[in-house]
């Protein structure tokens, strides 16, 4: 649905590019997570995809054109009017988009759980309800492509769960969702495909499980209680790619049969295994591996 090729963007007056040579494909109906620390370029990328910023170079193709697929943006800020009620905000944003179906406002209120708050002014809503209203406004035009920019920032866990559930339902109904966040747990539980942004570059993209098991994360790591004796260490070289580093063994490729034999050998030598790990534990570690920095830096 979205095809991005060698996209670059630099803010006027800035010496650094906010987006650098970024290429990306997002298929129709996917729930794509755009992960990266604050300042990594997520909002800029979303703005470029929405056509709110003009790229300096590169191409963005959205199947059928942005207008044809009815794209909508839910920005990070509470982008509505505090002095208007929930209903007045929804009526206004529906009206300016030309949404005429009277039932649509009721539907999005139902989806966002705002039914009981329709007459309350937005300024009096809690942070969680404001986030829901922000989401509801984005849904008014029945978008086929929905950009969500940090939709759960600063809210309580209950509201967060509600919003994540709502996003799942929206995606299940056929809407392609691009979910930008720096909350790795959310992206990990919500998205089937992710892209990791760092300093304007897409440092990784693909299926979440594949990414967690990719690169150095594809190694099997076995921690022993103590260092193996020299004779055993030399004997273990029969396993291709096995390295002994103190009390830790690492193995690039290993079949289940080989693994079984290796554990038997260690047991015979009286060496207890303290831990076994395969792949990356989570996105935090993957990000650390890819960039050398913490995701929350």
């Amino acid at each position: 649905m979205i095809h991005v090729e060698r996209l670059s963007y630099r803010y006027p007056g800035s010496t650094q590019e906010a987006i650098r040579e970024l290429s990306l494909d997002i298929g129709a109906g996917r729930l794509f997570g755009l992960l990266g620390p604050n300042g990594s370029g997520k909002t800029t990328l979303v703005s470029l995809l929405m056509g709110l910023l003009a790229p300096r170079s590169g191409r963005i193709d959205i199947a059928g054109g942005k207008g044809a697929v009815r794209a909508a943006l839910v920005p990070q800020e509470y982008a509505f009017y505090d002095r208007l009620s929930v209903m007045e905000n929804l009526r206004f944003f529906a009206g300016v988009q030309g949404v005429r179906e009277t039932g649509r406002i009721a539907e999005v209120m139902e989806t966002a759980g705002l039914r009981s708050f329709e007459m309350i002014r937005a300024e009096r809503l809690s942070g969680g309800l404001k986030r829901r209203l922000n989401l509801a406004i984005g849904l008014l035009g029945t978008p086929r492509l929905l950009f969500l920019d940090e939709p759960t920032v600063g809210i309580d866990p209950q509201s967060r769960r509600f919003i994540l559930e709502a996003i799942r339902r929206i995606n299940a109904a056929g809407t392609t969702v691009v979910y930008s966040s720096h909350y790795m747990e959310e992206v990990q539980t919500l998205c089937d495909e992710i892209g990791i942004l760092d300093q304007g570059r897409l440092v990784a993209r693909g299926n979440l499980q594949a990414l967690l098991g990719s690169g150095r994360g594809g190694q099997l790591s076995i921690g022993l209680e103590r260092e193996p004796p020299r004779s055993l260490a030399e004997a273990l070289h029969e396993y291709e790619g096995l390295k002994v580093n103190g009390a830790e063994l690492t193995l690039d490729h290993c079949s289940p049969g080989q693994l079984q034999r290796l554990f038997a050998r260690l047991a015979e030598a009286g060496l207890d295994v303290s831990r076994v790990r395969y792949g990356h534990a989570d996105l935090e570690e993957l990000f650390l591996h890819l960039t050398g920095r913490q995701l929350r830096d």
Partner: peptide
């Protein structure tokens, strides 16, 4: 402008 409402309205094609 600060709350992103302007950007949202522009993104709606206004």
């Amino acid at each position: 402008r600060q709350q992103g409402t302007y950007m949202r309205l522009r993104s709606m094609g206004i």
